[in-house]
């Protein structure tokens, strides 16, 4: 049994159909408690006041915004090297989810920045690289729509994804690379000395897990839709030619 069997659309539809109810269940069981815990049952922080509650939506969205692009990069490389259609369609399906996550990170960051930094926006390295990542998501989605031939679209968006990966990496490490700007370093760290107190950390990890499971759920649903859409177009074309 090889992992490449799942690149077969029929096999993917069977497996994802079986998986979906479990993934939806896991999403509900992680996302809802994570958000409720973060919103209602976390204390006010000494340094940030009640604004600490923004991290339960901001950090998971920002984490996913970067990691979804990395997932798209892997899927695009699989398409470019091995020509598996499901991987190209999975990258296409993931892009709107990543775009929404980036937008959430930007909006919630602006809401948090206003009282904390005294401004909604600053041309800080991390904020700017996130804005560029958001524009890359929009460009990626627009390119898919602009090209009629799906294989050509997958090739060109794959190349765009490679280029955009630079900004995904920059978004993650900008605060470290430049060591300047308003945005602080990572909220989560493996170093016990650095990461936030357990009372904030535990619901945050649950929220990140919930957002991650929501991404998997939406990715499976959207990839299934892309596969069906591709088949529909093929059947319509066959009917026209008959």
């Amino acid at each position: 049994m090889s992992i490449w069997e799942y690149a077969n659309p029929v096999k993917f539809m069977q497996t994802s159909g079986w998986l979906l109810p479990w993934v939806v269940g896991a999403t509900v069981l992680t996302l809802v408690p994570g958000l409720v815990w973060g919103f209602f049952f976390t204390p006010v922080a000494a340094e940030f006041g009640a604004t600490v509650k923004v991290i339960y939506v901001h950090v998971p969205a920002a984490t996913l915004a970067i990691n979804i692009w990395v997932m798209m990069l892997v899927a695009s490389l699989i398409w470019l090297i091995r020509r598996h259609h499901v991987s190209a369609l999975a990258a296409k399906a993931a892009a709107p989810i990543g775009m929404v996550m980036t937008l959430i990170a930007l909006i919630t960051g602006a809401f948090w920045g206003q009282p904390m930094w005294g401004t909604w926006w600053e041309w800080d390295p991390r904020l700017t690289s996130f804005l560029i990542l958001f524009l890359f998501y929009l460009g990626y989605m627009a390119l898919w729509e602009a090209i009629e031939n799906p294989d050509t679209a997958a090739d060109l968006t794959g190349v765009l994804c490679l280029v955009g990966s630079v900004f995904a990496v920059l978004s993650r490490y900008a605060a470290i690379f430049w060591n300047q700007g308003l945005h602080q370093g990572s909220t989560l760290s493996l170093d016990k000395e650095q990461h936030i107190a357990d009372v904030y950390w535990q619901p945050l990890v649950l929220s990140i897990g919930g957002f991650g499971m929501l991404f998997v759920t939406l990715l499976l649903l959207r990839t299934r839709t892309e596969i069906r859409s591709r088949r529909l177009k093929a059947l319509e074309q066959r009917e026209r030619m008959a």
């Binding site: 006041g49 509650k53 923004v54 989810i97 929404v100 959430i104 909006i107 919630t108 009282p115 939406l218």
Partner: peptide, 26 residues
């Protein structure tokens, strides 16, 4: 939330609205 009511409700409201929209469109 005191003086941070707009900050918190605004960011959570925007997040939940965008996620709901994404799920609905999907």
């Amino acid at each position: 939330f005191g003086k941070y009511t707009v900050t918190i409700l605004g960011s959570w409201g925007a997040t939940l609205a965008l996620l709901a929209g994404l799920i609905l469109v999907t």
